[in-house]
Protein backbone atom coordinates (compact mmCIF):
# COMPACT_ATOMS: atom_id res chain seq x y z
CA UNK A 1 0.00 0.00 0.00
CA UNK A 2 2.19 2.77 -1.21
CA UNK A 3 0.15 5.72 -0.20
CA UNK A 4 1.67 8.76 -1.77
CA UNK A 5 2.06 10.15 -5.20
CA UNK A 6 5.59 10.25 -6.52
CA UNK A 7 7.17 13.54 -7.38
CA UNK A 8 6.03 13.23 -11.02
CA UNK A 9 2.97 14.96 -12.44
CA UNK A 10 -0.33 13.66 -11.12
CA UNK A 11 -2.59 11.82 -13.56
CA UNK A 12 -5.70 13.54 -12.31
CA UNK A 13 -5.70 16.92 -10.70
CA UNK A 14 -8.69 19.09 -9.88
CA UNK A 15 -8.43 22.52 -8.35
CA UNK A 16 -11.37 24.15 -6.67
CA UNK A 17 -13.76 21.99 -8.70
CA UNK A 18 -17.36 23.10 -8.36
CA UNK A 19 -20.52 21.73 -9.94
CA UNK A 20 -23.77 23.66 -9.81
CA UNK A 21 -27.01 22.18 -11.03
CA UNK A 22 -29.13 24.91 -12.50
CA UNK A 23 -32.62 24.76 -13.85
CA UNK A 24 -35.93 25.51 -12.28
CA UNK A 25 -35.54 26.83 -8.76
CA UNK A 26 -32.42 27.57 -6.79
CA UNK A 27 -29.11 26.30 -8.12
CA UNK A 28 -27.81 23.28 -6.23
CA UNK A 29 -24.13 23.26 -5.39
CA UNK A 30 -23.35 19.55 -5.52
CA UNK A 31 -19.59 19.97 -5.53
CA UNK A 32 -18.28 22.96 -3.61
CA UNK A 33 -14.57 23.20 -4.27
CA UNK A 34 -12.79 19.88 -4.54
CA UNK A 35 -9.01 19.63 -4.85
CA UNK A 36 -8.17 16.08 -5.74
CA UNK A 37 -4.98 14.55 -7.09
CA UNK A 38 -4.39 11.05 -8.29
CA UNK A 39 -0.95 9.68 -9.03
CA UNK A 40 -0.32 6.97 -11.63
CA UNK A 41 -1.04 3.56 -10.16
CA UNK A 42 -2.75 4.98 -7.10
CA UNK A 43 -6.15 4.02 -5.74
CA UNK A 44 -8.14 6.71 -4.01
CA UNK A 45 -11.49 6.01 -2.37
CA UNK A 46 -13.98 8.86 -2.33
CA UNK A 47 -16.05 8.07 0.72
CA UNK A 48 -19.30 9.76 1.57
CA UNK A 49 -23.02 9.38 2.01
CA UNK A 50 -25.69 9.90 -0.64
CA UNK A 51 -25.71 13.46 -1.90
CA UNK A 52 -22.20 14.26 -0.69
CA UNK A 53 -21.14 14.93 -4.27
CA UNK A 54 -18.85 11.97 -4.81
CA UNK A 55 -20.56 10.61 -7.91
CA UNK A 56 -20.96 14.10 -9.35
CA UNK A 57 -17.23 14.72 -8.85
CA UNK A 58 -16.52 11.50 -10.71
CA UNK A 59 -18.77 12.44 -13.61
CA UNK A 60 -17.31 15.92 -13.77
CA UNK A 61 -13.89 14.37 -14.44
CA UNK A 62 -15.30 13.00 -17.71
CA UNK A 63 -17.74 15.85 -18.28
CA UNK A 64 -20.52 13.31 -18.33
CA UNK A 65 -23.00 15.63 -16.64
CA UNK A 66 -25.62 17.25 -18.87
CA UNK A 67 -23.98 20.48 -20.00
CA UNK A 68 -27.08 22.60 -19.93
CA UNK A 69 -27.97 21.75 -16.37
CA UNK A 70 -24.60 21.22 -14.70
CA UNK A 71 -22.13 24.09 -14.63
CA UNK A 72 -18.57 23.05 -13.91
CA UNK A 73 -16.16 25.49 -12.29
CA UNK A 74 -12.50 25.26 -11.35
CA UNK A 75 -9.94 23.27 -13.25
CA UNK A 76 -9.73 19.60 -14.19
CA UNK A 77 -6.56 18.15 -15.63
CA UNK A 78 -6.38 14.51 -16.61
CA UNK A 79 -3.24 13.04 -18.13
CA UNK A 80 -1.91 16.52 -18.77
CA UNK A 81 -4.98 17.77 -20.60
CA UNK A 82 -7.45 20.42 -19.58
CA UNK A 83 -10.73 18.50 -19.60
CA UNK A 84 -12.89 21.61 -19.37
CA UNK A 85 -11.44 22.89 -22.65
CA UNK A 86 -11.89 19.73 -24.74
CA UNK A 87 -14.07 19.99 -27.83
CA UNK A 88 -16.94 17.60 -28.35
CA UNK A 89 -14.85 15.45 -30.67
CA UNK A 90 -11.82 15.46 -28.38
CA UNK A 91 -14.04 14.62 -25.46
CA UNK A 92 -15.49 11.50 -27.07
CA UNK A 93 -11.97 10.38 -28.04
CA UNK A 94 -10.85 11.00 -24.45
CA UNK A 95 -13.70 9.13 -22.83
CA UNK A 96 -13.18 5.42 -22.74
CA UNK A 97 -9.59 5.55 -23.91
CA UNK A 98 -7.84 7.76 -21.33
CA UNK A 99 -10.48 7.53 -18.65
CA UNK A 100 -13.06 4.78 -18.33
CA UNK A 101 -15.92 4.34 -15.93
CA UNK A 102 -17.51 1.42 -14.15
CA UNK A 103 -21.10 2.02 -13.19
CA UNK A 104 -23.05 1.13 -10.10
CA UNK A 105 -25.79 -0.82 -11.84
CA UNK A 106 -24.26 -3.10 -14.46
CA UNK A 107 -27.78 -4.23 -15.30
CA UNK A 108 -28.69 -0.76 -16.46
CA UNK A 109 -25.37 0.35 -17.89
CA UNK A 110 -25.49 -2.02 -20.86
CA UNK A 111 -27.80 -1.38 -23.77
CA UNK A 112 -30.45 -4.09 -23.31
CA UNK A 113 -30.93 -4.81 -27.00
CA UNK A 114 -27.29 -5.33 -28.03
CA UNK A 115 -25.11 -8.33 -27.30
CA UNK A 116 -22.58 -7.64 -24.55
CA UNK A 117 -19.65 -8.69 -26.72
CA UNK A 118 -20.71 -6.30 -29.46
CA UNK A 119 -20.94 -3.45 -26.98
CA UNK A 120 -17.34 -4.01 -25.98
CA UNK A 121 -16.20 -4.46 -29.58
CA UNK A 122 -18.00 -1.24 -30.44
CA UNK A 123 -15.81 0.74 -28.04
CA UNK A 124 -12.63 -0.84 -29.39
CA UNK A 125 -13.63 -0.17 -33.00
CA UNK A 126 -14.49 3.39 -32.13
CA UNK A 127 -11.21 4.23 -30.40
CA UNK A 128 -8.68 2.16 -32.25
CA UNK A 129 -10.15 2.14 -35.77
CA UNK A 130 -9.85 -1.62 -36.09
CA UNK A 131 -12.19 -4.13 -37.69
CA UNK A 132 -15.19 -5.56 -35.88
CA UNK A 133 -13.50 -8.94 -35.81
CA UNK A 134 -10.50 -7.42 -34.03
CA UNK A 135 -12.88 -5.76 -31.60
CA UNK A 136 -14.57 -9.09 -30.93
CA UNK A 137 -11.20 -10.72 -30.39
CA UNK A 138 -10.30 -8.05 -27.84
CA UNK A 139 -13.64 -8.55 -26.12
CA UNK A 140 -12.97 -12.27 -25.88
CA UNK A 141 -9.52 -11.70 -24.41
CA UNK A 142 -11.03 -9.30 -21.87
CA UNK A 143 -13.75 -11.76 -20.92
CA UNK A 144 -11.04 -14.30 -20.20
CA UNK A 145 -9.11 -11.71 -18.25
CA UNK A 146 -12.04 -10.89 -15.97
CA UNK A 147 -12.64 -14.64 -15.65
CA UNK A 148 -16.09 -14.98 -17.13
CA UNK A 149 -16.75 -18.71 -17.55
CA UNK A 150 -17.21 -19.95 -21.14
CA UNK A 151 -16.34 -16.51 -22.49
CA UNK A 152 -17.03 -17.30 -26.13
CA UNK A 153 -20.68 -18.10 -25.52
CA UNK A 154 -21.04 -15.23 -23.06
CA UNK A 155 -19.96 -12.70 -25.67
CA UNK A 156 -23.19 -13.43 -27.50
CA UNK A 157 -25.34 -12.95 -24.41
CA UNK A 158 -27.67 -10.07 -23.95
CA UNK A 159 -27.24 -8.23 -20.64
CA UNK A 160 -30.41 -9.72 -19.15
CA UNK A 161 -29.07 -13.20 -19.72
CA UNK A 162 -26.18 -12.66 -17.29
CA UNK A 163 -26.13 -12.64 -13.50
CA UNK A 164 -25.35 -9.44 -11.63
CA UNK A 165 -21.80 -10.45 -10.81
CA UNK A 166 -21.09 -11.53 -14.36
CA UNK A 167 -22.52 -8.30 -15.73
CA UNK A 168 -20.18 -6.33 -13.47
CA UNK A 169 -17.26 -8.43 -14.73
CA UNK A 170 -18.37 -7.62 -18.27
CA UNK A 171 -18.61 -3.96 -17.27
CA UNK A 172 -15.02 -4.08 -16.03
CA UNK A 173 -14.01 -5.73 -19.30
CA UNK A 174 -15.73 -2.91 -21.19
CA UNK A 175 -13.99 -0.27 -19.08
CA UNK A 176 -10.60 -1.85 -19.70
CA UNK A 177 -11.27 -2.41 -23.41
CA UNK A 178 -9.22 0.55 -24.65
CA UNK A 179 -6.47 0.37 -22.06
CA UNK A 180 -7.35 3.46 -20.04
CA UNK A 181 -4.91 5.08 -17.65
CA UNK A 182 -7.54 6.11 -15.16
CA UNK A 183 -10.46 4.02 -14.03
CA UNK A 184 -13.40 5.69 -12.35
CA UNK A 185 -15.50 3.27 -10.34
CA UNK A 186 -18.87 4.53 -9.19
CA UNK A 187 -19.95 2.24 -6.34
CA UNK A 188 -19.22 -0.80 -8.50
CA UNK A 189 -20.16 -3.30 -5.82
CA UNK A 190 -23.16 -1.62 -4.21
CA UNK A 191 -25.72 -3.39 -6.38
CA UNK A 192 -24.18 -6.82 -5.81
CA UNK A 193 -24.67 -9.25 -2.98
CA UNK A 194 -21.97 -9.66 -0.36
CA UNK A 195 -20.13 -12.72 -1.68
CA UNK A 196 -20.02 -11.35 -5.21
CA UNK A 197 -18.86 -7.97 -3.86
CA UNK A 198 -15.68 -9.51 -2.50
CA UNK A 199 -14.94 -11.29 -5.77
CA UNK A 200 -15.38 -8.11 -7.76
CA UNK A 201 -13.22 -6.12 -5.33
CA UNK A 202 -10.46 -8.71 -5.50
CA UNK A 203 -10.65 -8.74 -9.28
CA UNK A 204 -10.46 -4.97 -9.45
CA UNK A 205 -7.53 -4.89 -7.08
CA UNK A 206 -5.72 -7.55 -9.07
CA UNK A 207 -6.28 -5.85 -12.41
CA UNK A 208 -5.30 -2.49 -10.96
CA UNK A 209 -1.98 -3.91 -9.80
CA UNK A 210 -1.25 -5.81 -12.99
CA UNK A 211 -2.11 -2.96 -15.31
CA UNK A 212 -0.81 -0.20 -13.05
CA UNK A 213 -4.14 1.60 -13.26
CA UNK A 214 -4.94 4.74 -11.33
CA UNK A 215 -8.38 4.32 -9.78
CA UNK A 216 -10.86 6.63 -8.15
CA UNK A 217 -13.27 4.46 -6.28
CA UNK A 218 -16.48 6.04 -5.10
CA UNK A 219 -18.19 4.26 -2.25
CA UNK A 220 -20.24 4.83 0.86
CA UNK A 221 -18.92 1.65 2.43
CA UNK A 222 -15.87 2.11 4.66
CA UNK A 223 -15.16 -1.61 4.52
CA UNK A 224 -14.93 -1.50 0.74
CA UNK A 225 -12.77 1.63 0.88
CA UNK A 226 -10.22 0.03 3.21
CA UNK A 227 -10.20 -3.07 1.04
CA UNK A 228 -9.16 -1.35 -2.16
CA UNK A 229 -7.76 2.09 -1.44
CA UNK A 230 -4.29 3.49 -0.86
CA UNK A 231 -5.78 6.77 0.13
CA UNK A 232 -9.19 7.79 1.42
CA UNK A 233 -10.85 11.13 0.82
CA UNK A 234 -13.98 11.69 2.86
CA UNK A 235 -16.60 13.92 1.24
CA UNK A 236 -19.31 15.86 2.98
CA UNK A 237 -21.69 18.37 1.37
CA UNK A 238 -19.60 18.72 -1.76
CA UNK A 239 -16.20 19.12 -0.07
CA UNK A 240 -13.42 16.78 0.88
CA UNK A 241 -13.33 17.14 4.64
CA UNK A 242 -10.54 14.70 5.36
CA UNK A 243 -7.97 12.90 3.33
CA UNK A 244 -4.99 10.74 4.04
CA UNK A 245 -3.51 7.31 3.79
CA UNK A 246 -6.13 4.64 4.26
CA UNK A 247 -4.55 3.39 7.49
CA UNK A 248 -4.27 6.84 9.07
CA UNK A 249 -7.82 7.87 8.29
CA UNK A 250 -9.30 4.65 9.64
CA UNK A 251 -7.09 4.38 12.76
CA UNK A 252 -6.98 8.03 13.67
CA UNK A 253 -9.85 9.89 12.02
CA UNK A 254 -9.27 13.63 12.42
CA UNK A 255 -12.63 15.04 11.36
CA UNK A 256 -15.69 14.54 13.61
CA UNK A 257 -17.69 13.47 10.55
CA UNK A 258 -15.24 10.68 9.75
CA UNK A 259 -15.31 9.64 13.39
CA UNK A 260 -19.10 9.58 13.24
CA UNK A 261 -19.03 7.44 10.09
CA UNK A 262 -16.63 4.98 11.68
CA UNK A 263 -18.67 4.80 14.87
CA UNK A 264 -21.90 4.14 13.00
CA UNK A 265 -20.60 1.05 11.23
CA UNK A 266 -22.92 -1.85 11.85
CA UNK A 267 -20.13 -4.39 12.30
CA UNK A 268 -19.24 -2.87 15.67
CA UNK A 269 -22.53 -4.02 17.06
CA UNK A 270 -22.13 -7.57 18.14
CA UNK A 271 -24.48 -7.97 21.03
CA UNK A 272 -28.22 -7.78 20.83
CA UNK A 273 -29.58 -4.67 22.43
CA UNK A 274 -26.51 -2.56 21.74
CA UNK A 275 -27.61 0.61 20.07
CA UNK A 276 -26.10 1.50 16.74
CA UNK A 277 -24.43 4.85 16.94
CA UNK A 278 -25.67 7.43 14.51
CA UNK A 279 -24.74 10.93 13.47
CA UNK A 280 -27.56 13.22 14.65
CA UNK A 281 -29.27 15.51 12.19
CA UNK A 282 -29.36 15.37 8.40
CA UNK A 283 -27.02 16.48 5.59
CA UNK A 284 -27.32 20.17 4.75
CA UNK A 285 -29.49 21.69 2.06
CA UNK A 286 -27.24 22.02 -0.98
CA UNK A 287 -29.16 25.03 -2.27
CA UNK A 288 -28.10 26.97 0.85
CA UNK A 289 -24.82 25.73 2.26
CA UNK A 290 -23.83 27.24 5.61
CA UNK A 291 -21.07 29.84 5.37
CA UNK A 292 -18.76 27.87 7.63
CA UNK A 293 -18.13 24.18 8.13
CA UNK A 294 -21.07 22.32 6.58
CA UNK A 295 -20.90 19.70 9.31
CA UNK A 296 -21.03 22.17 12.21
CA UNK A 297 -24.83 21.95 12.72
CA UNK A 298 -24.49 18.21 13.40
CA UNK A 299 -21.19 18.35 15.22
CA UNK A 300 -21.10 17.87 19.01
CA UNK A 301 -17.83 19.76 19.27
CA UNK A 302 -18.82 22.73 17.12
CA UNK A 303 -17.94 26.19 18.37
CA UNK A 304 -18.85 29.65 17.12
CA UNK A 305 -15.68 29.92 15.03
CA UNK A 306 -16.82 26.91 12.95
CA UNK A 307 -19.57 29.01 11.38
CA UNK A 308 -17.30 31.90 10.48
CA UNK A 309 -15.87 30.44 7.28
CA UNK A 310 -15.06 27.18 5.57
CA UNK A 311 -12.16 25.75 7.58
CA UNK A 312 -8.85 25.45 5.80
CA UNK A 313 -7.05 22.15 5.71
CA UNK A 314 -5.06 21.38 8.80
CA UNK A 315 -2.53 18.63 9.22
CA UNK A 316 -3.42 15.76 11.55
CA UNK A 317 -0.37 13.64 10.83
CA UNK A 318 2.08 13.59 7.91
CA UNK A 319 0.10 13.53 4.63
CA UNK A 320 -3.14 13.38 6.54
CA UNK A 321 -5.27 16.52 6.48
CA UNK A 322 -8.75 17.54 7.58
CA UNK A 323 -10.86 20.66 7.34
CA UNK A 324 -11.54 21.03 11.03
CA UNK A 325 -10.76 23.73 13.57
CA UNK A 326 -10.26 21.12 16.29
CA UNK A 327 -6.90 20.34 14.78
CA UNK A 328 -4.03 22.56 15.81
CA UNK A 329 -3.59 25.61 13.59
CA UNK A 330 -0.61 25.39 11.24
CA UNK A 331 2.51 26.71 12.95
CA UNK A 332 4.62 27.20 9.85
CA UNK A 333 3.05 27.72 6.47
CA UNK A 334 5.65 25.82 4.52
CA UNK A 335 5.34 22.47 6.23
CA UNK A 336 1.61 22.43 5.93
CA UNK A 337 1.44 23.34 2.25
CA UNK A 338 3.75 20.58 1.21
CA UNK A 339 1.40 18.12 2.81
CA UNK A 340 -1.52 19.68 0.97
CA UNK A 341 0.06 19.30 -2.38
CA UNK A 342 0.64 15.61 -2.02
CA UNK A 343 -2.18 14.38 0.13
CA UNK A 344 -4.70 16.63 -1.59
CA UNK A 345 -8.21 17.54 -0.55
Amino acid sequence: MSSLSPAGAPLVETKNLTVDFVGTGKPVRAVAGVDLTLAPGEVVALLGESGSGKSVTLRALMRLLPEKRAKIGGSIRVDGRDVTALSRRELSAFRGSTVAMIFQEPGLAFDPVYRVGDQIAEAVVRHERVSRAAGRARALALFERVRIPSPEQRLDNYPHEMSGGMRQRAMIALALACRPKVLLADEPTTALDATVQIQILLLLRELQRELGLAVIFVTHDIGVATEVADRIAVMYAGRIVESGACRDVIRAPAHPYTRGLLASRADHVFTKGTRLETIPGAPPDLTALPPGCAFAPRCAQARPACNAGVPEERTASPHHVARCLLLPAPAEDGACHRADATAAA
Partner: peptide, 19 residues
Protein backbone atom coordinates in the same frame (compact mmCIF):
# COMPACT_ATOMS: atom_id res chain seq x y z
CA UNK B 1 -28.32 4.75 -17.50
CA UNK B 2 -26.95 2.98 -20.53
CA UNK B 3 -26.95 6.19 -22.54
CA UNK B 4 -24.58 7.74 -20.02
CA UNK B 5 -22.51 4.57 -20.19
CA UNK B 6 -22.39 4.84 -23.99
CA UNK B 7 -21.08 8.38 -23.70
CA UNK B 8 -18.64 7.26 -21.02
CA UNK B 9 -17.09 4.75 -23.40
CA UNK B 10 -16.62 7.52 -25.93
CA UNK B 11 -19.41 6.92 -28.44
CA UNK B 12 -20.15 9.81 -30.77
CA UNK B 13 -23.56 11.42 -30.65
CA UNK B 14 -24.40 9.60 -33.86
CA UNK B 15 -23.40 6.32 -32.21
CA UNK B 16 -25.62 7.10 -29.23
CA UNK B 17 -28.46 7.98 -31.58
CA UNK B 18 -28.11 4.62 -33.30
CA UNK B 19 -28.56 2.86 -29.97
Amino acid sequence: DFVEALRAKGMSEFGVFRH
